[in-house]
């Protein structure tokens, strides 16, 4: 099942990428990133059958980081929304110096 898992992981990851590229809503963008993280997690888990449980440990770390990222990212989105009344990326170019 390893090959199938990895293939599935790749497909999900690609869908996530396409989502990131096509969507403009910041929140959905975040969710696409989460999807990509999940795809990677899947390949970790699949490969952990081959290499031992370290892959699963990594999945835990990835989840933690994802949680942190979601918390901070959503906070930022809320802050921006308060300021600009929008979460559309095309309207947000704060990063431009």
């Amino acid at each position: 099942m390893l090959a199938e898992s990895l293939a599935l992981s790749a497909v999900l990851f690609t869908i996530g990428v396409v989502g990131v590229l096509t969507r403009r809503n910041a929140i959905i963008l975040f969710m696409c990133v989460e999807l990509m993280l999940n795809a990677v997690n899947l390949s970790f888990v699949a490969l952990s059958k081959l290499y031992g449980a370290t892959g699963q440990v990594f999945v835990i770390f990835v989840m933690t980081v994802a949680a942190a990222e979601a918390a901070v990212g959503l906070a930022i989105i809320i802050a921006i929304f308060r300021h600009r009344q929008t979460v559309h990326l095309d309207d947000i170019n704060l990063l431009k110096g």
Partner: peptide
């Protein structure tokens, strides 16, 4: 990191 993220989220939000 989680702790920092929590604090950061609170501060930003």
């Amino acid at each position: 990191l989680l702790l920092a993220a929590i604090v950061g989220a609170v501060v930003i939000g």
